[in-house]
């Protein structure tokens, strides 16, 4: 298998629960070697996409390929993908030590030294029952189990949503150390954009079950600008520029645009865009999603 296989690749992927559509015609490629932020409002399809990638769900339509293989296809595929479900589930009646033993028995490639080191570093008592851990400790234990099998791809569903700010920062700092040391591809879903901006170098924006935009964070920031001008300015844009969102007051018009090159029109004041502003624009944009998913650098 080539080393530049995408971590996750979907082709016209859809998932419906009865009459409700959770994912709708998603085509996206997520490269390896990045920390990828999967962002979108609640119900946008983030958890569904992650559960499809780990093999807990089957697609209704289309295909999904993970590290070149079919999700959950067999022991070899399962060993390559680590998954931390929302709210960091642990077995409340089992001890921390029991969890480590389970991890070791169930995973052929288990890294016992790594797991032990993490438990010690976070001051977790192996005899402590998991149900009595704090939220932050429980997340650290669950991440330890997910990372203990040394996966190539680590999928995290809202890993910090239930943590207080201090525990959140510690969790992310630890995750980034893991990323620096072991270099797994990490895909984490989050609706906390400031966290995504800190830790992710690639983003996928989902809204209404569709991929609105996906790409390298720095490339996306470089190819989008905010234009501000008088209300009378025509919003027609030259070729190569596309408006993603527009807002108007009585006197002023503000556009967020995607552009291939610099903007020279003197009627506009041009400024750079932040990741949060960009993501929000795509999340609320009323545009045909398929045409936007293919944004390149």
């Amino acid at each position: 298998m080539s080393t530049n296989t995408n971590a996750i690749e979907t082709e016209r992927l859809s998932k419906r629960y009865g009459r409700r559509t959770a994912l709708d015609d998603c085509t996206v490629a997520i490269p390896t070697g990045h920390v990828v932020g999967l962002v979108g409002a609640n119900g946008a399809g983030k958890s569904t996409l992650l559960q499809l990638a780990v093999g807990l769900l089957e697609p209704t339509d289309g295909t999904i390929t993970v590290l070149g293989g079919r999700p959950g296809a067999g022991p070899a595929q399962l060993a390559r993908v680590g998954f931390l479900a929302q709210d960091a589930p642990v077995y409340g009646n089992l001890t921390v030590g029991d969890h480590l033993q389970l991890g070791e028995r169930l995973n052929p490639g288990w890294d016992r030294a790594l797991a032990r080191r993490r438990i010690e570093r976070f001051g977790l008592d192996p005899r402590q029952r998991a149900g009595r851990l704090s939220g932050g400790q429980r997340s650290q234990l669950a991440l330890t189990i997910a990372i203990g099998k040394r996966p190539e791809l680590l999928l995290l569903d809202e890993p910090v949503a239930s943590l207080d700010p201090l525990a959140r920062r510690e969790f992310l700092a630890d995750l980034m150390q893991l990323a620096a040391e072991h270099q797994p591809t990490v895909v984490l879903s989050s609706h906390l954009l400031s966290d995504v901006e800190r830790v992710c170098d690639h983003v996928v924006v989902l809204a209404g079950g569709r991929v609105r935009v996906a790409g390298d964070v720095d490339d996306l920031l470089a190819s989008h600008k905010v234009l501000t001008g008088a209300r009378t300015v025509s919003t027609a844009l030259p070729p190569g520029q596309t408006a993603i969102s527009a807002s108007h007051t009585d006197r002023q018009t503000t556009l967020l645009i995607r552009t291939a090159g610099p903007v020279h029109d003197p009627r506009w004041q041009v400024s750079d865009v932040g990741l949060e502003e960009l993501v929000l624009a795509y999340m609320s944009a009323d545009v045909p999603a398929r045409s936007l998913a293919a944004v390149g650098p």
Binding site: L172, A173, M176, Q177, A179, A180, E181, C200, D201
Partner: peptide
Amino acid sequence: VKEVVAQVAINPNT
């Protein structure tokens, strides 16, 4: 890189 990411919780590639 390891020291920086442990300290300020940012992406190692950054």
